[in-house]
Amino acid sequence: PAHPYDRLKTTSTDPVSDIDVTRREAYLSSEEFKEKFGMTKEAFYKLPKWKQNKFKMAVQLF
Rank of each mutant, 00 (worst) to 15 (best):
R7C: 14
D6R: 00
K51R: 13
K36M: 13
E31W: 10
S12D: 08
M57G: 02
K41Q: 08
N53M: 13
M57F: 07
Q52L: 01
K54L: 14
T11H: 06
D20S: 03
S29V: 09
D18R: 05
R23I: 09
L8R: 00
R24G: 04
K54H: 09
F37Y: 04
F62I: 14
A58C: 15
K51D: 08
P1A: 11
K34G: 11
T22G: 05
K54Y: 13
V16S: 03
V59W: 11
K36W: 13
L47A: 01
F37M: 06
E31F: 11
R23A: 04
T10D: 12
T22Q: 09
L8P: 05
F37G: 00
R23C: 15
Y27L: 05
A26N: 07
T10C: 14
T10S: 06
E32Q: 09
F33V: 00
I19H: 02
T13F: 07
S29R: 03
V59P: 01
F37I: 02
N53S: 09
L61M: 11
A58D: 12
Q60F: 14
K46C: 14
F33M: 01
A2P: 13
F62T: 15
A58S: 11
H3Y: 15
T40F: 03
F44T: 00
F62P: 12
A43D: 14
T10F: 07
T22W: 06
A2E: 15
Q60R: 09
T13P: 08
T13A: 10
D14W: 11
K46D: 12
N53G: 04
T40C: 13
S29A: 05
K9I: 12
S30M: 14
D18F: 08
F62L: 15
K56G: 01
K46I: 13
K49P: 07
G38S: 08
Y45G: 03
E25R: 09
M57A: 08
S17R: 13
D6H: 01
D6I: 00
R23T: 08
P48N: 02
E32K: 02
Y45D: 02
R23V: 04
L47S: 01
Y45C: 08
A58L: 14
T22L: 09
K46M: 14
E32N: 05
S30E: 14
F55C: 14
G38C: 14
A26E: 10
T22V: 06
S12P: 05
F37R: 00
K36Y: 15
E42V: 10
T13D: 11
S30F: 12
S17D: 12
K49A: 10
F37S: 00
T22D: 08
R7P: 08
T11F: 03
T13C: 15
M57K: 13
K56F: 07
Q60L: 15
P4Q: 06
D6K: 00
Q52N: 00
V59F: 10
E32R: 06
V21T: 11
K54F: 13
L47Q: 02
F62M: 14
K56M: 07
L47D: 00
D14L: 07
S17M: 13
E31S: 14
Q60Y: 15
D6E: 09
A2Y: 15
S12C: 13
G38Q: 10
W50M: 03
T40L: 08
M39P: 00
T11R: 02
F37K: 00
K46A: 13
K34L: 15
D18L: 08
F55P: 00
Y45W: 06
A26W: 15
V21W: 09
R24E: 02
Q60S: 10
S30T: 15
V16W: 03
S17Q: 15
S17P: 15
P1V: 14
T40D: 13
D20V: 03
D14S: 06
K41G: 02
S30D: 15
T22N: 11
E32Y: 02
L28A: 01
R7M: 06
G38M: 09
L28P: 03
T13L: 14
E31I: 09
H3S: 06
N53I: 14
I19R: 02
E42G: 07
A2L: 15
T10P: 02
K46N: 12
T11S: 11
Q60A: 12
E42D: 12
P4C: 14
F33A: 01
H3N: 05
Q60W: 10
V16H: 05
K51H: 08
M57N: 05
A2D: 12
F55E: 06
S30C: 13
F44L: 00
A2M: 15
K51V: 14
